[in-house]
Simulated assay, not measured.
Amino acid sequence: MGELIKGRGSTGYLPGRFEVTVSQAVDDGWHGGEEGEFAGVLPRTQVREETARSIISRNTSPDIPFSQSLNPYRGCEHGCSYCFARPSHAYLGLSPGLDFETKIFAKTNAPELLRRELAKPGYQVSPISLGINTDAYQPIERKLQLTRRIIEVLAETRHPFSLITKNALVTRDIDLLAPLASENLVSVHFSVTSLDNRLSAALEPRASAPHSRLRAIRALRDAGVPVGAMVAPVIPWVNDSELEAVLEAVREAGAGSAGYVLLRLPHEVAPLFRDWLQTHAPDRAAHVMSTIQQLRGGKDYDSAYGKRMRGEGVYADLLERRFSLALKRYGFPAKRPRPLDCSRFVAPRAPSPQGELF
Protein backbone atom coordinates (compact mmCIF):
# COMPACT_ATOMS: atom_id res chain seq x y z
CA MET A 1 0.00 0.00 0.00
CA GLY A 2 1.07 3.67 -0.14
CA GLU A 3 0.20 7.14 1.06
CA LEU A 4 -2.88 9.35 0.84
CA ILE A 5 -4.00 9.96 -2.76
CA LYS A 6 -6.19 13.04 -3.22
CA GLY A 7 -9.74 12.14 -4.22
CA ARG A 8 -9.30 8.40 -3.69
CA GLY A 9 -10.36 6.09 -0.88
CA SER A 10 -7.52 3.61 -1.40
CA THR A 11 -3.83 4.30 -1.03
CA GLY A 12 -2.55 1.67 -3.45
CA TYR A 13 -3.09 -1.39 -5.60
CA LEU A 14 -3.73 -4.13 -3.07
CA PRO A 15 -3.49 -7.45 -4.98
CA GLY A 16 -6.66 -9.49 -5.32
CA ARG A 17 -6.92 -12.82 -3.50
CA PHE A 18 -6.75 -14.78 -6.78
CA GLU A 19 -3.47 -13.26 -7.99
CA VAL A 20 -0.70 -15.78 -8.68
CA THR A 21 2.08 -13.19 -8.88
CA VAL A 22 2.37 -9.89 -7.05
CA SER A 23 4.39 -6.87 -8.20
CA GLN A 24 5.70 -4.14 -5.93
CA ALA A 25 6.82 -0.67 -6.97
CA VAL A 26 10.17 0.47 -5.59
CA ASP A 27 11.55 4.00 -5.82
CA ASP A 28 15.07 3.68 -7.27
CA GLY A 29 15.65 7.44 -7.15
CA TRP A 30 15.87 7.73 -10.94
CA HIS A 31 13.06 10.33 -11.10
CA GLY A 32 14.21 12.38 -8.14
CA GLY A 33 11.72 11.13 -5.55
CA GLU A 34 8.96 13.55 -4.58
CA GLU A 35 10.36 16.32 -6.80
CA GLY A 36 10.76 14.11 -9.85
CA GLU A 37 9.05 14.14 -13.23
CA PHE A 38 6.20 11.85 -12.20
CA ALA A 39 5.62 13.21 -8.69
CA GLY A 40 2.04 14.16 -7.98
CA VAL A 41 0.55 12.25 -10.94
CA LEU A 42 -2.90 11.10 -9.85
CA PRO A 43 -4.54 7.91 -11.13
CA ARG A 44 -7.26 8.77 -13.63
CA THR A 45 -10.61 7.06 -13.93
CA GLN A 46 -10.94 4.73 -16.91
CA VAL A 47 -14.39 3.65 -18.10
CA ARG A 48 -14.65 0.52 -20.22
CA GLU A 49 -17.72 -0.70 -22.07
CA GLU A 50 -18.90 -4.17 -21.15
CA THR A 51 -21.46 -6.33 -22.94
CA ALA A 52 -23.26 -8.15 -20.15
CA ARG A 53 -24.79 -11.59 -20.67
CA SER A 54 -27.36 -11.19 -17.89
CA ILE A 55 -28.47 -8.17 -15.91
CA ILE A 56 -30.75 -9.20 -13.02
CA SER A 57 -29.00 -10.77 -10.02
CA ARG A 58 -30.99 -12.89 -7.60
CA ASN A 59 -30.44 -13.89 -3.98
CA THR A 60 -32.16 -15.86 -1.25
CA SER A 61 -30.37 -14.26 1.71
CA PRO A 62 -32.66 -14.11 4.77
CA ASP A 63 -31.27 -10.75 5.94
CA ILE A 64 -31.66 -8.90 2.62
CA PRO A 65 -35.13 -7.38 2.00
CA PHE A 66 -35.12 -7.94 -1.78
CA SER A 67 -34.60 -10.91 -4.06
CA GLN A 68 -33.65 -9.10 -7.28
CA SER A 69 -31.02 -6.43 -7.93
CA LEU A 70 -29.44 -4.71 -10.90
CA ASN A 71 -26.08 -2.97 -11.19
CA PRO A 72 -25.37 -0.93 -14.34
CA TYR A 73 -21.69 -0.56 -13.40
CA ARG A 74 -18.85 -2.67 -12.00
CA GLY A 75 -16.46 -0.72 -9.83
CA CYS A 76 -17.39 2.63 -8.31
CA GLU A 77 -15.66 5.98 -8.57
CA HIS A 78 -17.10 7.14 -5.24
CA GLY A 79 -14.12 5.33 -3.74
CA CYS A 80 -15.70 4.49 -0.38
CA SER A 81 -12.90 3.02 1.70
CA TYR A 82 -15.25 0.57 3.41
CA CYS A 83 -17.17 -0.68 0.33
CA PHE A 84 -18.10 -4.35 0.72
CA ALA A 85 -18.17 -4.73 -3.09
CA ARG A 86 -14.45 -4.06 -3.57
CA PRO A 87 -13.50 -7.78 -3.57
CA SER A 88 -15.61 -8.28 -6.72
CA HIS A 89 -12.85 -6.66 -8.80
CA ALA A 90 -10.56 -9.53 -7.84
CA TYR A 91 -12.65 -11.78 -10.10
CA LEU A 92 -11.56 -9.57 -13.00
CA GLY A 93 -7.88 -9.90 -12.13
CA LEU A 94 -7.87 -6.31 -10.86
CA SER A 95 -7.05 -4.72 -7.54
CA PRO A 96 -9.87 -4.23 -5.02
CA GLY A 97 -7.92 -1.11 -4.06
CA LEU A 98 -7.32 1.63 -6.61
CA ASP A 99 -8.50 -0.43 -9.58
CA PHE A 100 -11.98 -0.72 -8.06
CA GLU A 101 -12.43 3.06 -8.06
CA THR A 102 -10.44 3.92 -11.21
CA LYS A 103 -11.34 1.09 -13.61
CA ILE A 104 -15.11 1.23 -14.09
CA PHE A 105 -17.02 -1.17 -16.33
CA ALA A 106 -20.25 0.17 -17.85
CA LYS A 107 -22.80 -2.42 -18.94
CA THR A 108 -23.85 -0.46 -21.99
CA ASN A 109 -26.40 -3.06 -23.12
CA ALA A 110 -28.14 -3.10 -19.72
CA PRO A 111 -31.43 -1.41 -20.78
CA GLU A 112 -31.90 -3.70 -23.80
CA LEU A 113 -30.92 -6.77 -21.77
CA LEU A 114 -33.37 -5.82 -19.02
CA ARG A 115 -36.19 -5.49 -21.54
CA ARG A 116 -35.38 -8.96 -22.88
CA GLU A 117 -35.34 -10.53 -19.41
CA LEU A 118 -38.64 -8.92 -18.43
CA ALA A 119 -40.19 -10.27 -21.64
CA LYS A 120 -39.40 -13.91 -20.83
CA PRO A 121 -42.60 -15.97 -20.40
CA GLY A 122 -41.57 -17.36 -17.01
CA TYR A 123 -40.52 -14.07 -15.45
CA GLN A 124 -41.81 -13.62 -11.87
CA VAL A 125 -42.39 -10.01 -10.80
CA SER A 126 -40.54 -8.87 -7.68
CA PRO A 127 -39.18 -5.39 -6.87
CA ILE A 128 -35.73 -4.79 -8.36
CA SER A 129 -33.14 -2.88 -6.30
CA LEU A 130 -30.82 -0.63 -8.31
CA GLY A 131 -27.28 0.19 -7.24
CA ILE A 132 -26.77 -2.39 -4.51
CA ASN A 133 -23.24 -3.56 -5.30
CA THR A 134 -22.01 -0.30 -6.85
CA ASP A 135 -23.78 3.07 -6.97
CA ALA A 136 -26.07 3.45 -9.99
CA TYR A 137 -25.57 7.23 -9.76
CA GLN A 138 -21.79 7.37 -9.59
CA PRO A 139 -20.17 10.25 -11.56
CA ILE A 140 -20.03 8.54 -14.97
CA GLU A 141 -23.83 8.19 -14.92
CA ARG A 142 -24.09 11.91 -15.64
CA LYS A 143 -22.64 11.21 -19.09
CA LEU A 144 -23.74 7.66 -19.92
CA GLN A 145 -27.27 7.81 -18.42
CA LEU A 146 -27.48 4.03 -18.17
CA THR A 147 -29.50 4.21 -14.95
CA ARG A 148 -31.95 6.67 -16.47
CA ARG A 149 -32.48 4.40 -19.49
CA ILE A 150 -33.04 1.44 -17.16
CA ILE A 151 -35.64 3.45 -15.23
CA GLU A 152 -37.36 4.26 -18.52
CA VAL A 153 -37.73 0.52 -19.21
CA LEU A 154 -39.06 -0.08 -15.69
CA ALA A 155 -41.48 2.84 -16.08
CA GLU A 156 -42.72 1.56 -19.43
CA THR A 157 -43.41 -1.91 -17.99
CA ARG A 158 -44.74 -0.60 -14.64
CA HIS A 159 -42.16 -2.72 -12.83
CA PRO A 160 -41.58 -1.84 -9.14
CA PHE A 161 -38.05 -0.92 -8.08
CA SER A 162 -36.03 0.81 -5.38
CA LEU A 163 -32.83 2.82 -5.42
CA ILE A 164 -30.05 3.33 -2.91
CA THR A 165 -27.40 5.95 -3.58
CA LYS A 166 -24.91 8.43 -2.14
CA ASN A 167 -25.25 10.82 -5.07
CA ALA A 168 -27.60 13.78 -5.38
CA LEU A 169 -27.61 13.14 -9.14
CA VAL A 170 -30.72 11.03 -8.53
CA THR A 171 -32.74 14.27 -8.48
CA ARG A 172 -32.06 14.58 -12.22
CA ASP A 173 -34.58 11.78 -12.72
CA ILE A 174 -37.41 13.21 -10.62
CA ASP A 175 -39.43 13.62 -13.82
CA LEU A 176 -39.47 9.81 -14.11
CA LEU A 177 -39.60 8.95 -10.40
CA ALA A 178 -42.47 11.20 -9.30
CA PRO A 179 -45.15 9.69 -11.60
CA LEU A 180 -44.02 6.19 -10.64
CA ALA A 181 -44.17 7.09 -6.94
CA SER A 182 -47.81 8.13 -7.37
CA GLU A 183 -48.51 4.52 -8.40
CA ASN A 184 -46.41 3.05 -5.56
CA LEU A 185 -43.82 1.69 -7.97
CA VAL A 186 -40.62 3.23 -6.59
CA SER A 187 -38.80 4.21 -3.41
CA VAL A 188 -35.41 5.87 -2.94
CA HIS A 189 -32.94 5.42 -0.10
CA PHE A 190 -29.91 7.55 0.68
CA SER A 191 -26.84 6.25 2.46
CA VAL A 192 -25.71 8.95 4.90
CA THR A 193 -22.52 8.01 6.74
CA SER A 194 -21.65 11.31 8.43
CA LEU A 195 -22.65 14.97 8.61
CA ASP A 196 -19.00 15.98 8.90
CA ASN A 197 -17.71 17.15 5.50
CA ARG A 198 -14.10 16.32 6.33
CA LEU A 199 -14.87 12.81 7.52
CA SER A 200 -17.21 12.17 4.60
CA ALA A 201 -14.54 13.32 2.12
CA ALA A 202 -12.05 10.91 3.66
CA LEU A 203 -14.44 7.94 3.84
CA GLU A 204 -16.19 8.40 0.49
CA PRO A 205 -14.16 10.97 -1.48
CA ARG A 206 -16.23 11.25 -4.68
CA ALA A 207 -19.73 10.83 -3.31
CA SER A 208 -22.01 13.83 -2.79
CA ALA A 209 -21.30 15.91 0.32
CA PRO A 210 -23.64 15.35 3.30
CA HIS A 211 -25.53 18.63 2.80
CA SER A 212 -26.12 17.74 -0.87
CA ARG A 213 -27.64 14.40 0.11
CA LEU A 214 -29.95 16.09 2.62
CA ARG A 215 -31.00 18.59 -0.03
CA ALA A 216 -31.71 15.71 -2.45
CA ILE A 217 -33.82 13.92 0.18
CA ARG A 218 -35.88 17.10 0.57
CA ALA A 219 -36.29 17.51 -3.19
CA LEU A 220 -37.52 13.94 -3.61
CA ARG A 221 -39.88 14.26 -0.66
CA ASP A 222 -41.33 17.47 -2.10
CA ALA A 223 -41.89 15.66 -5.42
CA GLY A 224 -43.86 12.92 -3.66
CA VAL A 225 -41.19 10.22 -3.91
CA PRO A 226 -40.93 8.02 -0.78
CA VAL A 227 -37.44 8.48 0.68
CA GLY A 228 -35.61 6.47 3.32
CA ALA A 229 -32.13 6.73 4.78
CA MET A 230 -29.46 4.27 5.79
CA VAL A 231 -26.76 5.11 8.32
CA ALA A 232 -24.30 2.84 6.61
CA PRO A 233 -21.85 1.79 7.65
CA VAL A 234 -21.66 2.50 11.36
CA ILE A 235 -17.96 2.42 12.25
CA PRO A 236 -17.00 2.17 15.94
CA TRP A 237 -15.09 5.24 17.18
CA VAL A 238 -15.20 6.84 13.71
CA ASN A 239 -18.80 7.86 13.00
CA ASP A 240 -20.86 5.96 15.59
CA SER A 241 -21.22 9.08 17.75
CA GLU A 242 -23.19 10.70 14.91
CA LEU A 243 -25.96 8.09 14.79
CA GLU A 244 -28.60 10.28 16.46
CA ALA A 245 -27.52 13.45 14.63
CA VAL A 246 -27.74 11.76 11.23
CA LEU A 247 -31.19 10.35 11.99
CA GLU A 248 -32.42 13.75 13.13
CA ALA A 249 -31.06 15.43 9.99
CA VAL A 250 -32.51 12.94 7.50
CA ARG A 251 -35.88 12.98 9.27
CA GLU A 252 -35.98 16.77 9.13
CA ALA A 253 -35.12 16.60 5.41
CA GLY A 254 -38.05 14.28 4.75
CA ALA A 255 -36.93 10.66 5.19
CA GLY A 256 -39.87 8.48 6.15
CA SER A 257 -37.87 5.41 7.16
CA ALA A 258 -34.36 4.61 8.34
CA GLY A 259 -32.00 1.74 8.96
CA TYR A 260 -28.35 1.09 9.76
CA VAL A 261 -25.66 -1.44 8.88
CA LEU A 262 -22.52 -2.18 10.86
CA LEU A 263 -19.18 -1.96 9.06
CA ARG A 264 -18.49 -5.09 7.00
CA LEU A 265 -14.93 -6.13 6.13
CA PRO A 266 -15.04 -9.18 3.81
CA HIS A 267 -11.90 -10.44 2.08
CA GLU A 268 -9.65 -7.60 0.84
CA VAL A 269 -11.78 -4.89 2.47
CA ALA A 270 -10.21 -5.67 5.85
CA PRO A 271 -6.58 -4.81 4.92
CA LEU A 272 -7.79 -1.87 2.83
CA PHE A 273 -9.72 -0.42 5.77
CA ARG A 274 -6.85 -1.06 8.16
CA ASP A 275 -4.68 0.98 5.84
CA TRP A 276 -7.32 3.73 5.75
CA LEU A 277 -7.29 3.85 9.55
CA GLN A 278 -3.51 4.12 9.67
CA THR A 279 -3.66 6.95 7.12
CA HIS A 280 -6.57 8.97 8.52
CA ALA A 281 -6.96 7.97 12.18
CA PRO A 282 -3.72 6.33 13.40
CA ASP A 283 -4.41 7.31 17.01
CA ARG A 284 -7.63 5.23 17.02
CA ALA A 285 -6.75 2.45 14.59
CA ALA A 286 -6.03 -0.25 17.18
CA HIS A 287 -9.09 0.67 19.25
CA VAL A 288 -11.38 0.60 16.20
CA MET A 289 -10.19 -2.81 15.04
CA SER A 290 -10.33 -4.22 18.58
CA THR A 291 -13.99 -3.22 18.86
CA ILE A 292 -14.80 -4.58 15.42
CA GLN A 293 -13.29 -7.93 16.36
CA GLN A 294 -15.34 -7.97 19.56
CA LEU A 295 -18.42 -7.53 17.37
CA ARG A 296 -17.32 -10.26 14.98
CA GLY A 297 -16.40 -13.12 17.31
CA GLY A 298 -12.72 -12.24 17.43
CA LYS A 299 -12.35 -11.87 13.66
CA ASP A 300 -12.32 -8.91 11.28
CA TYR A 301 -15.56 -10.18 9.76
CA ASP A 302 -18.26 -12.78 10.29
CA SER A 303 -20.46 -13.42 7.24
CA ALA A 304 -23.10 -15.45 9.12
CA TYR A 305 -26.68 -14.44 8.39
CA GLY A 306 -28.22 -12.49 11.24
CA LYS A 307 -24.79 -11.27 12.39
CA ARG A 308 -23.12 -9.70 9.38
CA MET A 309 -25.36 -6.60 9.34
CA ARG A 310 -25.57 -6.01 13.10
CA GLY A 311 -22.72 -7.81 14.86
CA GLU A 312 -23.07 -9.29 18.32
CA GLY A 313 -22.19 -8.46 21.91
CA VAL A 314 -22.55 -5.49 24.22
CA TYR A 315 -21.64 -2.82 21.67
CA ALA A 316 -24.06 -4.27 19.10
CA ASP A 317 -26.90 -4.37 21.64
CA LEU A 318 -26.21 -0.79 22.69
CA LEU A 319 -26.14 0.41 19.10
CA GLU A 320 -29.46 -1.27 18.35
CA ARG A 321 -30.99 0.31 21.45
CA ARG A 322 -29.72 3.77 20.52
CA PHE A 323 -31.12 3.40 17.02
CA SER A 324 -34.54 2.31 18.28
CA LEU A 325 -34.79 5.21 20.74
CA ALA A 326 -33.70 7.71 18.09
CA LEU A 327 -36.41 6.54 15.69
CA LYS A 328 -39.03 7.29 18.34
CA ARG A 329 -37.44 10.57 19.38
CA TYR A 330 -37.39 12.01 15.86
CA GLY A 331 -40.83 10.81 14.87
CA PHE A 332 -40.13 8.10 12.32
CA PRO A 333 -43.32 6.15 11.55
CA ALA A 334 -43.64 2.96 13.58
CA LYS A 335 -45.05 1.06 10.62
CA ARG A 336 -42.82 -0.08 7.80
CA PRO A 337 -43.41 1.52 4.40
CA ARG A 338 -46.02 -0.33 2.37
CA PRO A 339 -44.65 -2.84 -0.14
CA LEU A 340 -44.24 -1.69 -3.71
CA ASP A 341 -47.06 -2.67 -6.07
CA CYS A 342 -46.27 -5.70 -8.24
CA SER A 343 -49.75 -5.93 -9.78
CA ARG A 344 -49.26 -3.24 -12.43
CA PHE A 345 -46.49 -5.00 -14.37
CA VAL A 346 -46.99 -5.27 -18.12
CA ALA A 347 -44.40 -7.45 -19.80
CA PRO A 348 -42.72 -5.91 -22.84
CA ARG A 349 -43.14 -7.63 -26.17
CA ALA A 350 -40.34 -10.14 -26.71
CA PRO A 351 -37.87 -9.14 -29.46
CA SER A 352 -38.70 -10.78 -32.77
CA PRO A 353 -36.29 -11.45 -35.68
CA GLN A 354 -39.15 -10.36 -38.00
CA GLY A 355 -39.33 -6.93 -36.40
CA GLU A 356 -42.45 -5.01 -35.42
CA LEU A 357 -45.44 -4.90 -37.78
CA PHE A 358 -47.65 -2.65 -35.64
Rank of each mutant, 00 (worst) to 15 (best):
residue 235 I to E: 04
residue 235 I to F: 04
residue 235 I to G: 01
residue 236 P to T: 14
residue 236 P to H: 08
residue 237 W to R: 13
residue 238 V to G: 01
residue 239 N to S: 05
residue 239 N to G: 05
residue 240 D to N: 09
residue 240 D to W: 05
residue 242 E to H: 11
residue 242 E to W: 03
residue 242 E to L: 10
residue 242 E to K: 08
residue 243 L to E: 08
residue 243 L to Q: 10
residue 244 E to Q: 14
residue 244 E to F: 08
residue 245 A to Q: 12
residue 245 A to G: 10
residue 245 A to H: 11
residue 245 A to E: 11
residue 246 V to P: 00
residue 246 V to E: 01
residue 247 L to E: 00
residue 248 E to C: 10
residue 248 E to K: 07
residue 248 E to I: 04
residue 249 A to N: 04
residue 249 A to P: 02
residue 249 A to W: 02
residue 250 V to S: 06
residue 251 R to S: 08
residue 251 R to L: 08
residue 252 E to R: 13
residue 252 E to Y: 09
residue 252 E to T: 12
residue 253 A to K: 04
residue 253 A to M: 09
residue 254 G to V: 09
residue 254 G to Y: 05
residue 255 A to V: 06
residue 255 A to T: 09
residue 256 G to D: 08
residue 257 S to T: 05
residue 259 G to C: 15
residue 259 G to M: 05
residue 260 Y to R: 12
residue 260 Y to G: 07
residue 260 Y to I: 10
residue 260 Y to C: 09
residue 261 V to L: 15
residue 261 V to H: 06
residue 262 L to F: 13
residue 262 L to H: 03
residue 263 L to H: 02
residue 263 L to E: 00
residue 263 L to N: 00
residue 264 R to Q: 13
residue 264 R to E: 02
residue 264 R to V: 01
residue 264 R to G: 01
residue 266 P to I: 08
residue 266 P to D: 15
residue 267 H to C: 10
residue 267 H to D: 15
residue 268 E to H: 04
residue 269 V to C: 04
residue 269 V to I: 15
residue 270 A to S: 13
residue 270 A to M: 06
residue 270 A to I: 04
residue 270 A to K: 08
residue 271 P to M: 09
residue 272 L to E: 02
residue 272 L to A: 07
residue 272 L to G: 01
residue 273 F to W: 00
residue 274 R to W: 05
residue 274 R to K: 13
residue 275 D to K: 04
residue 277 L to E: 00
residue 277 L to T: 01
residue 278 Q to I: 11
residue 278 Q to L: 14
residue 279 T to R: 09
residue 279 T to E: 13
residue 281 A to Y: 13
residue 281 A to T: 14
residue 281 A to I: 09
residue 282 P to A: 14
residue 282 P to D: 15
residue 282 P to V: 12
residue 282 P to M: 12
residue 284 R to F: 08
residue 284 R to Q: 13
residue 285 A to N: 03
residue 286 A to Q: 12
residue 287 H to Y: 13
residue 288 V to I: 14
residue 288 V to Y: 03
residue 289 M to G: 04
residue 290 S to H: 09
residue 290 S to R: 12
residue 290 S to P: 07
residue 291 T to L: 12
residue 292 I to P: 01
residue 292 I to D: 00
residue 293 Q to Y: 04
residue 293 Q to L: 09
residue 294 Q to W: 07
residue 294 Q to T: 14
residue 294 Q to N: 14
residue 295 L to E: 01
residue 295 L to F: 08
residue 296 R to G: 03
residue 296 R to V: 05
residue 296 R to F: 11
residue 296 R to K: 12
residue 296 R to P: 03
residue 297 G to E: 13
residue 297 G to I: 11
residue 298 G to A: 11
residue 298 G to K: 14
residue 298 G to D: 10
residue 299 K to Q: 15
residue 299 K to W: 13
residue 300 D to G: 04
residue 300 D to L: 10
residue 300 D to C: 06
residue 300 D to M: 07
residue 301 Y to Q: 05
residue 301 Y to G: 03
residue 302 D to M: 06
residue 302 D to A: 14
residue 303 S to R: 15
residue 303 S to V: 13
residue 303 S to E: 15
